[in-house]
Design a protein around this nucleic acid. Sequence first.
DNA 1: TGCTTTCACGGAAGTGCTTTCATGCTCATA
DNA 2: TATGAGCATGAAAGCACTTCCGTGAAAGCA
Lengths: 337, 337
Amino acid sequence: MSQKDNRPPTIYDVAKAAGVSISTVSRVINASSHVSDPTRERIQDAIDRLGFVPKAEARARAMKGFSRIGVLTPFFTAPAFVQRLRGIAEGLLSTPYELTIFAVESIEHLNHYLATLPLTAHLDGLILLSLKVNDQSANKLKQHDLETVLIEFPRPDLNTVEIDDLAGGEMAGNYLADKGHQSFGFIGDTSELREYTILPITQRLQGFQKALRERNLYLPSEFICKAEYDVQNAEEKIEPILKQKNHPTAIFAATDLQALGVVNKARALGLRVPEDLAVLGFDDLDIAGYVGLSTIRQSLEESGRLAVEILLSRIKDPDRPLRHVRLPLKIIERQST
Amino acid sequence: MSQKDNRPPTIYDVAKAAGVSISTVSRVINASSHVSDPTRERIQDAIDRLGFVPKAEARARAMKGFSRIGVLTPFFTAPAFVQRLRGIAEGLLSTPYELTIFAVESIEHLNHYLATLPLTAHLDGLILLSLKVNDQSANKLKQHDLETVLIEFPRPDLNTVEIDDLAGGEMAGNYLADKGHQSFGFIGDTSELREYTILPITQRLQGFQKALRERNLYLPSEFICKAEYDVQNAEEKIEPILKQKNHPTAIFAATDLQALGVVNKARALGLRVPEDLAVLGFDDLDIAGYVGLSTIRQSLEESGRLAVEILLSRIKDPDRPLRHVRLPLKIIERQST
DNA sequence: TGCTTTCACGGAAGTGCTTTCATGCTCATA
DNA sequence: TATGAGCATGAAAGCACTTCCGTGAAAGCA
């Protein structure tokens, strides 16, 4: 019995017990591969037998960062956030970084997070999804050297991943006009509910109007409609418009969920989609593919992956310049137009 | 400028700034005597100025009462996991607990997590989503006193939240038979792809068959169909069945995504849903509501909330007995049946 | 004045871990 | 047969501290 008195076992004891070097033990404790199965097993065995627990303090010392990246997200009720999150998780998959999610549910909550996370959360990096960052918070982040990437919120002094909502609106207008439509409608969501998120429907609408205007087409204000970000509410709000005898023949919805509501209601009213009514969404959620909705793809997963990429590259080398990536948009034509 | 870039200051930085050796700084930090007053003051000054916090201490503090709960999930590609996660996040919202997500992508990966997380992750609790836990891993969890809740995997020695898939299948059978159907089909997913997850379609199928048998109805094996967990693949796989002249009039899909594929394909083939073909799904994903799919609700969010509740109550009082909750299922009738 | 104490302080050796680099090994390729 | 690619492994160099030991100078005592 070569037990070291009654002191807690160290990695050396484990190594000796398993007949390997401490490096190899460290490898099996951490995710690293490059350890053969039999060896790994022997080591696991020794760990269990000795009741070895790595001392957190020693680890902290030896390790560079915390291996933690945090994501601040409006409470993920919306599919768009989920898909972005998926991209983030995917990007982090082959890295040693942990993914910790902080759900934001009010603007105070957000600002509280932004004030305290850099100090107490022990993060190497932070990604914010569609959240407003004011000057004060931004300074705090920079002051504490917490690398940050903003998705879907512009800020010259922080890394950002954005899309061009105005251009997206224009694409929609041009696309529908090219299809020969003459009368249009728009449905967007009322984002006033949440002051801390931004859902830039206004810009999408402006782009849409701009494209139409340039072709001498017109979007009547009575065909502009706002609804909550939700299928059912969109169904209700669009109903009076679709019931008019000369309803628009093409509707651009600022989000896929609302586009789906429009399609549902149209069908329920006996309108054929796309023959009687073309519907174009925005986002390209998974669900758009499932139900054959034409839409403008904004590469949600990609935005997450990209944010991770930017974050990790800056963590690795803080001297890299800030990046402001604008993701391309693309019309995905399916069966609703 | 002798600034150490952006890295947090170390004891060396303080020593240099105060013009002393690190030993002396260490003495000051640890309140040891044998330091002259002027020197002590100079050092304190430097400490304050640099905002020095001993790293190990910081780490230890961070990990002390961790307030961290981890979720192991098959890489959240499937909406069902997302909804469970949503329930978990919701349950954690008003608590001081952080939510850290560990995405599992292979069985080795899972077992590695199970072997090392109890040691190094500093978690107060762990929730596993639809993941297989073997005896060895379970022992490890218990041995390290890591409170654990399993969702959708049965184990008498750990807390569990489950549903009764067999009963769910029976509900489907009874429901469709009550509607007067005489000929049935089934589509389920091939979960062989991922040995680490469990998608208990077999039981759903068995329950379905059982209910039908008890009414002297029959599910022909040529109408049992397996597809990947995916809308498009379901569309493809169900096509030959729907094309037969006496195709079934009711199809039970073991998951909503596949149900949706069936509905899509049926419509594409000119069949009316539900007049010519009734389709019943399983899960009640958000999307089921969006597209009017009848389904069997398994309260995905609720499973997450419940898991959190169980976990927190056991963390608070480890003497509470293990819990094995079985969530009720409910038929949600919409437009596809 | 000479000698021991005392005490502030620096040097350097641990501490328990991670990580980089070097090495030998086995296969597959030229 | 030479070559190298890939991988499991060990040796050793950190990491950010603590602590032990030793030194020189001031202080105390005769």
